[in-house]
């Protein structure tokens, strides 16, 4: 009921949504993170995501398991993160959850994406016309 993936191929969003369908679910909630065209006022040309794969997969699973512990009514959880080079509009991450009722689906989905951003070993480098920056690296 937990599906985790880290891929250098485009994320099949429709397949990710379908993967959390469950007869006991009255709600499916999804977060789709996409590549924005600017960052702190600078035009972004592309992103590169680098991952420590084994730890990222382990930590992603832990985050999903924490969500299930906190919201035991979760039916299914899918988290897929992209790595490699992405361009404006590309899908970087998909979180999909299903629950009997909607309130818990919003809460669990938000918990997973928020916690992912804090602990999962993936790094984003933004490329601009005049340089590049590892996001969040410096104070």
């Amino acid at each position: 009921m937990i599906h985790i993936d880290l891929t250098d191929q485009p994320i099949a969003v429709a397949d990710a949504l379908r993967s959390v369908e469950a007869d006991g679910a009255g709600a499916i909630n999804t977060f789709i993170g996409t590549v924005r065209n600017q960052s702190t006022g600078r035009a972004v040309i592309r992103l590169e995501y680098e991952a420590y794969d084994s730890m990222a997969l382990h930590q992603l699973r832990k985050v999903a398991e924490q969500a299930v512990a906190q919201w035991p009514m979760l039916q299914k959880v899918t988290v897929i993160h992209r790595k490699g080079t992405l361009h404006i509009g590309d899908v970087a991450v998909v979180v999909a959850v299903s629950t009997p009722h909607r309130a818990e689906s919003f809460a669990a989905c938000q918990y997973i994406i928020d916690t992912l951003k804090q602990v999962v070993t993936i790094w984003k480098k933004e490329f601009y016309q005049d340089g590049d920056v590892w996001v969040a690296a410096h104070p």
Binding site: S54, L116, I122, A137
Partner: peptide
Amino acid sequence: YAADDTPLHERDEIALIPPVSGG
């Protein structure tokens, strides 16, 4: 993630983790 006082061993898989920025 290792606590500050975690002892390291030769066979451990050790990595340095700068600020993460996935999502």
